[in-house]
Write a protein that binds this DNA or RNA. Structure first.
Length: 646
RNA sequence: GCCGAUGUAGCUCAGUCGGUAGAGCAGCUGAUUCGUAAUCAGCAGGUCGUGGGUUCAACUCCCUCCGUCGGCUCCA
């Protein structure tokens, strides 16, 4: 007999070698069918596996994150089974659970189309009905190789050969379908109640574009139909908020085949939002001791060679010729800022110098990655380069982090942080990289924020902290980034006079807060579903007179608000109030101000707020107070920085 | 760039078996002067993404290219 302890301290006596099912019975859990696996001493395993060791156990419910992952992984096996039955020439590769679902990659040169999905789903249904248990088997490397070689599953053979010595090799079988797999899995196919295949896609074997392209099928599965429906509804909701759709409907921006892919045309409404956002950014940067700079779009290729961009970033750059010289169109804003710094002798007393530029950059992105405002070929960054002494580096990184957090907080976005280290294609000395990484790492630790490390994902000139925000639909977006750079100061021979009267090398931080204005606007559009907060709304109030005889008074109300800087529009069209309201609502205008006989007599308005009901009548003073409170540009809590003559 | 899908009026979408296009909304004109999500009537609007091919005849079938969408790789 062995003793197992549950999470809540309950002890269960079990015969050594008994299965998880027996353990399940002994715990007397309410809904045994809702338990899909077991965690034994921290390791997940199938319910069917025998238990030999005492220790701690945890029952994994189908609705828990781990349970859902198991459910989805098993669903991918069942789908692979169905695909092999319908398309016997398809070769299986890998099929993991992912966030919100799963996929399975097949080598199947004819490719699957979305029409095939219904057939595959139907076949899956039959397999599920068969109530086949998932059976685990461990086998020797030689047996495993033979098994999959005989089946002609060359990708599985490659995977087995890649497994480290000593790692147990296991297969899972349900019905007559066997797959190389670590597990664990559902007890049987019947546990799968709610699933849906979503779409097909191409994907490279092992994610490398030099490898053959496989056919991927994405799907998802949930514990019950309700959860699946809720998820599908969320996808629908996301579709409704798609900034490309709203961009058209709200007349915000457009992209044109005749202009070129990835080049955004701002319509006046989004132009206004952008202008307000940029004003906000300028204020916040000035407040924090940044100085505004501007550089040209074209710089001679010689300069890009010096910076390393020509050798390491050329495939993303555009070049052009002027007279005898080749010029590069800037993909980053740093070079001009380097030249500002170099324009004179610098003293340690001047540092840190923080150059801020709303700089428009052009990058040659692959055609397949372009998407609305999210991924474009020309975009404007709220970019800055901080040049400081090595001693100041840590503090500056922390300063940028708190800047980003304050701004994200103001918009109401939660954030996540990531640290990216040295990539394969990079420049600079090892020791500089180490110093830079440790500077960022220390700053992160000091901030107390949890973070994840992405090995080899840094920029070619230095490591970076990426800050990702989460929007209203819980989707993550890369916006802010803080990059540490020792090599550009080296390449441009930047220096400053130290206290000791010697020349020293400064370090540099590249950083953006919102990142790309285009991307950030796209995120805002989706986050707010097009209903911008009043301070950003292109039109803040619209005045809706009931009949022609109220036009004069409507004009007076408009003038009064206009004088206070409110963005007001008059709807003097010969239409019924209902029509005007409907239109103002669909244009997401925050304040709708109805004026008729009563209002004119009382010198008031009847206000309606977007998405809500009638607020009732209010005097013009009340109205002004209310609108101005919402229309004022918000500010982060940081106090302005003093400036001294160095 | 690669895999798959897709492209008809400003927008959303019909268009059968191949016989050169239709609706709603938006627009314009007129009537209506109206109290919290669409007043009525009339008019106008399209080189069916591009170029080529098959055919007596192509929005429809085939090929090319371009754009877009979903992914892969990449990324702010």
């Amino acid at each position: 007999m062995i003793e197992l302890k549950g999470k809540n301290g309950e002890a269960v006596q079990l015969e050594s070698g008994a299965s998880g099912f027996e353990l399940l019975k002994k715990t007397g859990v309410q809904d045994p069918k809702g338990i899909v696996a077991l965690k034994l001493n921290g390791k997940l395993q199938d319910l069917s596996r025998p238990i030999h060791e005492p220790g701690e156990f945890e029952l994994i419910g189908i609705k828990s994150p781990e349970g859902e992952a198991i459910l989805r992984h098993s669903t991918s096996h069942i789908m692979a089974d169905a695909v092999k039955k319908l398309f016997p020439s398809a070769k299986v590769t890998i099929g993991p659970a992912i966030e919100n679902g799963f996929y399975y990659d097949f080598e199947y040169p004819p490719g699957f189309s979305d029409q095939d999905l219904a057939g595959i789903e139907a076949r899956m249904k039959e397999i599920i009905k068969g109530d086949h248990p998932f059976k685990r088997q461990e086998l020797s490397r030689a047996d495993a190789l033979k098994l999959f070689q005989d089946k002609g599953e060359s990708y599985k053979v490659e995977l087995i050969n890649g497994l480290p010595e000593g790692e147990p090799i296991s297969t899972y079988q349900h019905g007559d379908f066997i797959d190389l797999c670590r597990g664990p899995h559902l007890p049987s196919t019947r546990y799968l109640k709610a699933y849906k295949l979503l779409h097909t896609a191409g994907a490279y074997w092992r994610g490398d574009e030099r490898n053959p392209q496989l056919q991927r099928i994405y799907g998802t599965a949930f514990a019950d139909q309700g959860d699946l429906d809720a998820y599908l509804k969320r996808l629908e909701e996301a579709k409704k908020r798609d900034h490309r759709k709203l961009g058209r409907e709200l007349d915000l921006f457009s992209l044109h085949e005749e202009v070129g892919p990835g080049f955004v045309i701002y319509h006046p409404k989004l132009g206004l939002v952008r202008a307000v956002l940029e004003e906000f950014l300028k204020k916040e940067h000035l407040k924090r001791g940044y100085q505004i700079a501007y550089g040209p779009t074209l710089l001679k290729s010689e300069l890009w060679k010096r910076s390393g961009h020509y050798d390491h970033y050329r495939q993303n750059m555009y070049f052009t010729q002027i007279d005898e010289d080749q010029y590069g169109i800037k993909p980053m804003n740093c070079l001009s800022h380097m030249l500002i710094y170099k324009n004179g002798l610098r003293s340690y007393r001047e540092l840190p110098l923080r150059y801020f530029e709303l700089g428009t950059v052009h990058r040659h992105e692959k055609s397949g990655v372009l998407a609305g405002l999210f991924r474009v070929r020309a975009f404007t960054q709220d970019d800055a380069h901080i040049i400081c002494t090595p001693d100041q580096l840590q503090g500056e990184v922390l300063g940028v982090m708190s800047f980003v957090l304050e701004v994200m907080d103001l918009f109401g976005f939660p954030v996540e942080m990531e640290l990216s280290t040295r990539p394969a294609d990079s420049i600079g000395a090892d020791q500089d990289w180490e110093r830079a990484i440790s500077a960022l790492d220390t700053a992160l630790k000091q901030s107390g924020f949890p973070y994840q490390v992405n090995e080899g994902e840094g920029a070619f000139y230095g490591p970076k902290i990426d800050i990702k925000l989460k929007d209203a639909l819980d989707r993550k977006w890369q916006c802010a980034t803080i990059q540490c750079d020792f090599t550009l100061p080296e390449r441009f021979d930047l220096s400053y006079m130290g206290k000791d009267g010697e020349k020293h090398r400064p370090v540099m931080i590249h950083r953006v807060v919102l990142g790309s204005i285009e991307r950030f606007l796209g995120i805002l559009i989706e986050h707010f579903a097009g209903a911008f907060p009043t301070w950003l709304a292109p039109v803040q109030a619209r005045i809706l007179p009931i009949a022609d005889r109220h036009h004069n008074y409507a004009g007076q109300v408009a003038d009064r608000l206009l004088e206070k800087g409110v963005r007001v529009e008059l709807d003097l069209r010969n239409e019924k109030l209902n029509y005007k309201i409907r239109q103002a609502e669909s244009e997401k205008i925050p304040f709708m101000l109805v004026v008729g006989d009563q209002e004119e007599q009382e010198q008031s308005v009847s206000a309606r707020i977007r998405g809500r009901e009638d607020l009732g009548k209010m005097t013009l003073e009340q109205l002004e107070g209310r609108i101005l409170a919402e229309a004022r540009m918000p500010e982060t809590k940081s106090k302005p920085t003093r400036r001294e003559v160095p």
